[in-house]
């Protein structure tokens, strides 16, 4: 039973996290009492997002977190938080490509932690702490965890193939991250327009409205970001993956103890 709990927590995190992200698509009109208060929904969602981040942090830190894990996480968080500020091809791509590569090199659990902590460091460094932060942490954590889960498949394609597969993964996430993060701010302005959210519109109509909104506001932006992701991973992946993997054994050191020598 205790063995099953981590799995249960991850499933619950996935379900609740996705539900909190996607609430504009499914929430019925009558659940939100007055239209004026429909705009409170993002703040409620932020609360739920924060709780999900808290619960998953409690669960993930339960293995042994040694000094090296904390230090590598801290250093990579600083690097990716800074890369977010550096002018790289595509917007914001800096923070993504390192999370994808580190997730691939160190595994899903580390990728999740790195996504969460990189966003936290970036928020502290850039003064970006606010109700949007839980969503950014969850989205980036999912990206890192996904890279860790995806990598064993990608690795079957050989060294070059792995990098290409990860670049494709980063390209897809470039759009997914933009689309998901829009969802946090979109419902702030409920209204009757064809690009606006209105509770109780129904899934199909909401999707239509969101698609129109996304194409009008974010598509070009995200396309540049996604391309930046893919190019960065393609260019640097071949050199960075071995670099990262060389320290992987430090995170979970394997010790073989031979029996002690007899005392002379």
């Amino acid at each position: 039973m205790t063995r099953a709990r981590p799995a249960l927590v991850y499933v619950l995190v996935a379900v609740v996290g996705v539900a909190a992200f996607l609430y504009p698509f499914w929430i019925p009109a009558e659940a939100l009492p007055a239209r004026a208060h429909a705009a409170d929904a993002p703040l409620w969602a932020a609360l739920v997002g924060g709780l999900v981040v808290a619960a998953i942090t409690l669960e993930v830190r339960r293995g042994t977190m040694n000094g090296a894990t904390v230090a590598v996480l801290g250093v990579l968080s600083a690097a990716s938080g800074l890369l977010r500020l550096v002018d790289l091809p595509g917007n914001n791509a800096g923070i993504f490509f390192l999370v994808v590569l580190a997730g691939a090199a160190f595994g899903a659990r580390f990728g999740l932690l790195l996504g969460v902590s990189a966003m936290a460091v970036s928020a502290v460094v850039t003064g970006g702490i606010g109700p949007w932060l839980p969503f950014q942490m969850l989205a980036l954590g999912a990206m890192g965890a996904g890279a860790g889960a995806f990598d064993p498949v990608a690795r079957r394609l050989g060294r070059r193939g792995e990098v290409v597969a990860l670049a494709a993964y980063g390209w897809v996430w470039g759009f997914a991250y933009g689309a998901v993060m829009n969802l946090w701010s979109w419902p702030f302005l409920p209204g009757d327009g064809p690009t606006q959210w209105r509770p109780g519109l129904g899934l199909t109509r909401t999707l239509e409205h969101y698609w129109a909104y996304y194409v009008a506001t974010s598509f070009a932006w995200d396309a540049a970001g996604a391309l930046g992701n893919a190019v960065l991973i393609l260019v640097t992946g071949g050199a960075l993956l071995p670099t990262l993997r060389r320290v992987a054994h430090r995170l979970e050191p394997v010790v073989e103890l031979a029996p002690p020598a007899p005392v002379a």
């Binding site: 040694n66 000094g67 050191p253 010790v255 103890l257 031979a258 002690p260």
Partner: peptide, 12 residues
């Protein structure tokens, strides 16, 4: 050595 580095350790 060996707890943080990992590796094969014998003796004491």
């Amino acid at each position: 050595v060996p707890h943080a580095s990992g590796g094969r350790f014998a003796g004491s």
